Amino acid sequence: MKPLFFAVSLLLATSAAAQTPAPGPAPVEAPRKITASRIILVGDSTTAVQGGWGPSFCAYRVTSFVACINLARGGRSSGNYRVEGSWDIALAEMKSGGFAKTYVLIQFGHNDQPGKPGRSTDLATEFPQNLKRYVEETRAAGAIPVLVTPLTRRIFKDGQLVDDLGPWAEATRKVARELNVPLIDLHARSRAEVIRLGPVDAMRFAQEPPAPHIRDAAKSGTTVEASTPVPVPANATEEERRNLTESMNRTKSAFDYTHIGREGADVFAEMVAEDLATVVPELKRGLVLKAK
């Protein structure tokens, strides 16, 4: 009986195995949907890591759903930012992929003004054409351009804020209208805030506190020269003189009426975030905004 029992058991096991389907290939996971966005900052020192609003924006005004890359550089204009190759770096970053959307905030104007050899651009022709080219190439790279008007300076005369960057801000607005580009009017908002504070209180936005004589002068409603003198050879040409006193590559932290320290960066970065949420609504969930 035992041989018969084992034969029947083997037959049943073989039959059961035959009825069990062979394992198929492992299911392929559907590709994960990329939801994170990226913001790239392009501009001059008033956006850059030292002296600009960019650090506070990247550190405190975006959520973990947004990567923020600051490619702004001090001393750069809409012209030499491209010539030196910085724009090529920004384009490569835009094309690198890995994000649902890439937004590029572009702010120039300070170094496009006259008197800065190798940097200044013509307001009527070069400056707007440079901005248009940045917009077109950003779109061609698959990214979304956002133009930003230049941060105001904090120079006063007879109680009135000197609006020397107004024409560059208006040129930026015009390009935004013509090419249907989202616009952050930082110039208008920063100007209103500096006027509200006045020449003395607005000094707290600088990188370093002013010297006593500079603060005292501002109480009259007119600010005085604040830059630290740079030794200039007596036989220097005008171009050499300007490049020495307005170097593109000299990193410094000092009191002036253009660059900003932590407090100024926090205030103006908040303005940028608020306006960005308005002009690019799909980014709002990725921005840290103060409750109103």
Rank of each mutant, 00 (worst) to 15 (best):
E136Q: 15
A140Y: 09
L151Q: 13
L165M: 07
R139H: 11
R153D: 12
R139A: 14
D163P: 07
R153K: 09
I155W: 09
G159K: 11
K157A: 14
V146R: 04
G166W: 02
L161A: 03
Q160V: 15
L151P: 07
F156H: 06
I155K: 12
D164A: 08
T138A: 06
V135K: 01
V162F: 01
R153G: 09
T152L: 03
A169W: 00
G142Q: 05
F156K: 05
I144Y: 13
V135A: 01
A171V: 03
L161F: 06
V162H: 03
E137S: 07
G159W: 10
T138Y: 09
P145M: 10
R133L: 11
V135P: 00
W168F: 10
R154P: 05
A140N: 07
P150H: 01
K157V: 11
D158F: 04
R139D: 13
T138D: 10
E136Y: 12
L165G: 01
I144T: 15
V148W: 09
R154K: 10
T138W: 10
G166K: 04
L165N: 01
L151M: 14
V148E: 13
W168I: 07
D158N: 12
A171E: 01
Q160K: 15
V148N: 07
R153C: 08
P145F: 03
T152P: 03
A169V: 12
E137F: 02
T138V: 14
E170V: 06
A140P: 04
L147I: 13
L165Q: 04
T149N: 01
F156S: 03
L161C: 06
V135E: 03
T152Q: 10
P145Q: 08
R154I: 07
V135S: 00
L151V: 14
T138C: 09
L147E: 06
L147D: 10
G159P: 08
Y134V: 07
R139W: 15
W168E: 03
A141T: 15
W168H: 02
Q160D: 14
F156A: 09
Q160W: 04
K157C: 02
P145G: 08
E170Q: 11
V135Q: 00
L161M: 09
K157T: 11
L165T: 04
P167V: 03
T152V: 14
V135Y: 03
V162S: 08
P150C: 01
I155D: 08
V146K: 05
R133I: 06
W168Q: 03
P145E: 11
W168S: 02
R153Y: 14
G159L: 10
R153M: 09
A171G: 05
E170G: 00
R139F: 13
L161D: 11
R153P: 09
T138Q: 10
P167C: 02
V148K: 08
R139C: 14
V148P: 09
T152G: 08
D164Q: 09
D164E: 15
E137N: 06
T149P: 02
A171I: 00
V146F: 03
F156T: 12
D158H: 10
L151Y: 03
V146P: 04
T149L: 01
V148L: 08
T138F: 13
P167M: 03
